[in-house]
Amino acid sequence: MYKQIVITGFGGQGVVLAGKIVGQAAAIVDKLESTLVQSYGPESRGGACSAQVTIADGPIYFPYIKNPDILVCMSQSGYDKQHHTLKDDGTLVIEQDLVKPVGDRDYYAVPCTRYAEEIGHKMMANIIMVGFMAGITGAISLDAARSTVEKSVPKGTEEKNLKAFERGWEHAQATLKGRRHKAAGKPGVVA
């Protein structure tokens, strides 16, 4: 097993923390190996930012990712820069309201910033995205993801963040269910 995940967005969206949660869940809870490398500019907010997470069941030598299996885009500029790198059979996951994909490639979308605002804190968009991505791709287990979210967020915000995580996870389940129904020829369900 060798899975490469790239998460892109702009600084302040919690892209690196999202990557850290994914990598940590895999390494500490799922007992795999993982690496996280990040790129960011000198500015702390607003600049382009990306996190590259590799998860494997053996040693990881080269931590950088050329062609990811999973590409998560939290911003349009991140998408524009990275979408052509995704493997042909890779999975594209986007922030529904912030990214307009081009072409006819299949993708999974979640309005995580809007959901986060509904929960009461738009800073939690990244946690919703982690829940959604985990639900869609199965890259990390539900238990691993949940317990890592709990440990990674500031004290006192655990409950809200877990709620955010579950919102993402549920949206993923609904999306997958919708697709199964659609595939079975039952239109009209959320897809």
Binding site: G19, G23, Q24, A27, S34, T35, L36, V37, Q38, P63
Partner: peptide
């Protein structure tokens, strides 16, 4: 920088 900022087990 790469080792310094890379997260690993």
């Amino acid at each position: 920088e790469i080792i310094g900022h890379m997260s690993e087990k």
